[in-house]
Design a protein around this nucleic acid. Structure first.
Length: 488
RNA sequence: CGGGGUAUAGCGUAGUCCGGUUAUCGCGCCUGCUUUGGGAGCAGGAGAUCGGGAGUUCGAAUCUCUCUACCCCGACCA
């Protein structure tokens, strides 16, 4: 195996795969498209998960769990929904295996199910089936439930974290008495997603509305956060749907109002997935591997001790003990690497794994009362007094967090171009980046641009201003200002 | 599901066209000694039914048939 990574500029895709493997984040499972999330990758996901879990609980949501298995008939109850998901469902048809002389083991034909069972691709249907039982009165509303779960979508083409046939996510499903309240919930969650992405993953995002053709199957409106990856392509990082009364109608969920009228319930659903881990890699990674934002990094400071013999080893160990202690007291996540690999090997390995700060301590430092502190984001190395370093580390971690965000933001801005002609759009898309321009609002234009350039409308950005703009494709007055880009 | 390709040790590979005796090399792994401030060195060692099955042949990683899996390009997608 070569020591360096594939070139990030010319071979971004191979670079990504190598980083995932060599940073020890994940591996391929035996069934096509499945992923084993390894401990280091899983800690990263857990940190994202815990962060968002706190955010939704602070806004009145509660967690619950719904079944993995859904009766096939449920999926058909909402016409758009079934159309969107029918082509990628894993279906359970039998319940038993049996021994067979010729083939070893076969599906027992006698165990065929009356009604096949779908492995959930998303849980709207089973949740709204239950909500019908739980909601009778305006007093039962709003219902603000979230679940952390796995879902299965039988995708044709898969990539670790970005698109796997099974993935982990959270899916929020809320029920409301009024349309206004559901719309507010949809946008409130969108704002939480923005905060999660920007304040914790250090990943700048555009918020906006999906077009009709890109919206969630079964939604009235889909809002999203879209981020620009290191190869200037777009990644949908989270979606928040206003489902209107579609699922209430499909599952006949009504409630009685204060003045004794019967009305259909209003709904939202929203989700972010393990794809966010992929987004972090694609946003911040560099030629040395991963660069993790300190707030979600499993390890914030890795300590590399250096010693020539046992005597020195003990010296370094004793020197480190109080230092580690005070860092831990300051709630810094510290890891000491005492494995018997060479220091150079460790430097490279922990850089690959994206640890924000590295602290080197050898006999020389012990003698001088110093440490060496190296930043993963900039590569800067400084020689500090031991106590000085301990005092600076929490601030430095914040500085790195902000630095990664600013760097990504600058990149996103530099590669977002406002254009007024189709030629300009084609040129920007070819070179890579986001295009901001007018759109006449028709499906035809959207489809044609996609066909001719492979770029899709990522969103109608929040705060758009179509006034005076024309559609770059048709030349008609623009109905919306939109963002076009090639997407993952 | 269309079009193209690949399958040899944990990973990456040579050998396949043109059949021939102990299947090549690198990384990784194990043991020992020397090492350790940017991917350490030396010595020794373990590890492969050459994707499965059938056939041709005195003899198959190599030729033929067949099955399977995976990869790349399209249509689908958090």
């Amino acid at each position: 195996m070569s020591k360096g990574l594939p070139n990030r500029d010319t071979d971004f895709s191979a670079w990504y795969n190598q980083v995932v493997k060599r940073a020890d984040l994940a591996d391929h499972g035996p069934v096509k498209g499945t992923m084993v999330i390894k401990p280091y990758g899983f800690q990263l996901w857990e940190n994202i998960k815990e962060t968002f879990d706190k955010m939704i609980k602070a806004t009145g949501h509660v967690n619950a769990y719904f079944p993995l298995f859904i009766p096939k008939s449920f999926l058909a109850k909402e016409a758009q929904h079934v159309e969107g998901f029918a082509k990628e469902c894993a279906v359970v048809t039998h319940t038993r295996l049996k021994a067979d002389d010729e083939h070893g083991i076969i599906v027992d034909p006698d165990s065929k199910l009356e009604e096949e069972i779908i492995v959930r691709p998303t849980s709207e249907t089973v949740i709204w089936f239950m909500y019908k039982k739980w909601i009778q009165s305006y007093r039962d509303l709003p219902l603000l439930i979230n679940q952390w779960a796995n879902v299965v979508r039988w995708e044709m083409r898969t990539r670790l974290f970005l698109r796997t046939s099974e993935f982990l996510w959270q899916e929020g499903h809320t029920a409301h008495a009024t349309e206004e309240e559901a719309q507010k919930e949809t946008l409130d969650i969108l704002e939480l997603y923005r905060q999660l992405a920007e304040d914790y993953l250090a990943m700048p995002v555009l918020t906006g509305l999906k077009t009709e053709s890109e919206k969630f199957a079964g939604a009235v409106k889909t809002y999203c956060i879209e981020a620009m990856m290191g190869d200037k392509r777009a990644l949908q990082a989270g979606t928040s749907h206003n489902l209107g009364q579609n699922f209430a109608k499909a599952f006949d969920v009504t409630f009685q109002t204060k003045d004794n009228k019967e009305e259909l319930v209003w709904a939202t659903s929203w989700g972010v997935s393990t794809r966010l881990v992929g987004a972090v890699i694609l946003t911040h990674g560099d030629e040395k591997g991963l660069r993790l934002p300190p707030k979600i990094a499993p390890i914030q400071v890795v300590i590399i001790p250096i010693s020539r013999n046992e005597e020195q080893e003990k010296l370094v160990k004793d020197y480190l003990a109080p230092l580690v202690d005070s860092l831990e007291k300051a709630h810094v996540r510290v890891h000491q690497d005492w494995t018997d690999r060479s220091p150079g090997f460790k430097f490279n390995e922990w850089e690959m794994k994206g640890v924000p700060l590295r602290l080197e301590v050898g006999p020389r430092d012990v003698e001088n009362g110093k440490v060496v502190l190296a930043r993963r984001d900039t590569g800067d190395k400084s020689f500090l007094l031991k106590d000085e370093a301990v005092a600076q580390i929490p601030d430095l971690l914040e500085e790195i967090q902000d630095g990664l965000f600013q760097q990504a933001l600058k990149f996103q801005k530099e590669n977002t171009h406002t254009v007024s002609s189709y030629d300009e759009l084609k040129r920007v898309i070819k070179e890579g980046g986001f295009v901001r321009c007018g759109w006449d609002g028709t499906d035809e234009t959207e489809a044609k641009v996609k066909e001719e350039t492979k770029a899709t409308i990522r969103c109608i950005p929040t705060g758009e201003n179509p006034e005076g703009l024309t559609c770059v494709y048709s030349g008609k007055p623009a109905k919306h200002e939109v963002i076009y880009a090639k997407a993952y």
